[in-house]
Design a protein around this nucleic acid. Sequence first.
DNA 1: TTATGATTGTGATAAATTTCACAAGTCTAT
DNA 2: ATAGACTTGTGAAATTTATCACAATCATAA
Lengths: 215, 215
Amino acid sequence: MCDDLVIIPKATLGRLPLYLRVLNGLHHLNIQFVSSEEMAMKLGITSSQLRKDLSYFGGQGIRGTGYDVAYLLGKIKAILGVSQNWQMAIVGLGKLGTALARYPGLQQHGINVAALFDIDEAKIGWKVGELSICHLSELTEKKKELGLEIAALTVPAQAAQEVTDLIVEAGIQGIWNFAPVRLETPENVIVQYEDLVVGVLTLSHLLSRRLGKMR
Amino acid sequence: MCDDLVIIPKATLGRLPLYLRVLNGLHHLNIQFVSSEEMAMKLGITSSQLRKDLSYFGGQGIRGTGYDVAYLLGKIKAILGVSQNWQMAIVGLGKLGTALARYPGLQQHGINVAALFDIDEAKIGWKVGELSICHLSELTEKKKELGLEIAALTVPAQAAQEVTDLIVEAGIQGIWNFAPVRLETPENVIVQYEDLVVGVLTLSHLLSRRLGKMR
DNA sequence: TTATGATTGTGATAAATTTCACAAGTCTAT
DNA sequence: ATAGACTTGTGAAATTTATCACAATCATAA
Ligand SMILES: NC(=O)c1ccc[n+]([C@@H]2O[C@H](COP(=O)([O-])OP(=O)(O)OC[C@H]3O[C@@H](n4cnc5c(N)ncnc54)[C@H](O)[C@@H]3O)[C@@H](O)[C@H]2O)c1
Ligand SMILES: NC(=O)c1ccc[n+]([C@@H]2O[C@H](COP(=O)([O-])OP(=O)(O)OC[C@H]3O[C@@H](n4cnc5c(N)ncnc54)[C@H](O)[C@@H]3O)[C@@H](O)[C@H]2O)c1
């Protein structure tokens, strides 16, 4: 059907968002061509890795000149599905959920925050930006109405599984999970884990070694 | 000096925080032994991968019985440097910075939020939990006073590099960066990138393929 | 003491990812 | 036109990571 049925290695996929960011920056500066060396520099990777990555889906580079920024941008956007305007719900409007709801970076990447859910009666009806917080029981209804496809899960860990069950029941197929638990879901649902503690513990480990501080 | 001078593969290191979480749960339930099979199940990985990972630093499993939860917990905590109580500053008390400041999960993993910084005069002096927000100009002073070792960077992308320079100048060696930009730092500073957009774009990509929605 | 069942630890193998190195293509200047 | 400077695309090699498979070990019970 479409030209990215080629298998793109996972490791490459993980870097595409970073490439997207750099290309966006260059595009904004009205720069038309960029070499793999230049781009790799900005990213802190090797140019051969970048070229290899792009080769999986045909970067269409021009030898001697580099890559066409606008073309590459479009290509990567298509692969990442950024051109789609996904409708996303946020479930759990606590500290983190509220921060996400107000984050303009999502809209800029084709993710439209379209509905907010909680179960705390005190929060229902409150507005965050343009949107009102709905009761979670309205999820299925709103899903149909708004075409929700992604749910950001920002509820406490203990509630995460039961809320997930409701999300799945509502027919939402993508879950962006911030709760520090593994979720049980049917095969057809994709869960992306966003575990912030992993990041800071990695830092902690690296610092321990660097500073030679043990025990 | 200490027994984890063995090289632990990066891929393994990335999973240790997940193991830590499961072990913590088991420990809380007063469970003394766990088999690799059981633990792997909870994590959605294979048991052989888990065993191999543990083998890099001597999991000290007992054949026929499994692993001693408390022992393994201690071992992984030591490797990740969780036993240390790192002193962390948060720079940029906006939506995300405030959410982090109030997140108890950090303290639970040995990360102590010890100081808050911003440059918005309207915010200086405000309290978030127990702590007052200080002006960024006090960073060096507070660093010495409190022994700050990590800085969570939650300022707008445009300000990230200049703030980083100040953090480095203050002598802080670990930066947990939430701004979507690559930072220039000296060799001796470790930067951990926490790029939330990468996660949601990965989800976006997987959904595109799954749902066959292109263009 | 010995048989039985469970589970680890790890070589060997397979798969995935990264790096290397250079032929081949493109641009610019003369 | 030609030379020279760049830059891509990509096989091949190197490295890293994951999986397999099973001997070795331990606990238990008869
Ligand atoms: N705050 C952070 O910086 C941070 C960092 C990393 C991970 N997390 C994780 O993100 C999640 C949310 O964290 P937070 O700090 O925003 O917590 P929070 O307590 O501030 O917010 C949780 C929200 O979820 C709502 N909620 C509870 N049960 C619900 C249910 N069954 N259905 C719908 N909504 C429900 C609550 O009413 C509340 O509004 C937690 O799992 C936490 O571990 C948070
Ligand atoms: N909000 C989110 O959910 C979210 C998600 C992903 C990434 N991020 C990133 O995290 C960062 C912060 O996001 P946010 O939504 O909290 O933004 P925000 O605008 O709410 O907060 C930024 C804070 O930084 C402070 N600040 C600005 N310049 C400063 C400086 N030079 N020194 C110290 N403080 C300064 C501001 O006063 C403000 O308090 C941004 O880079 C953003 O891209 C945010």
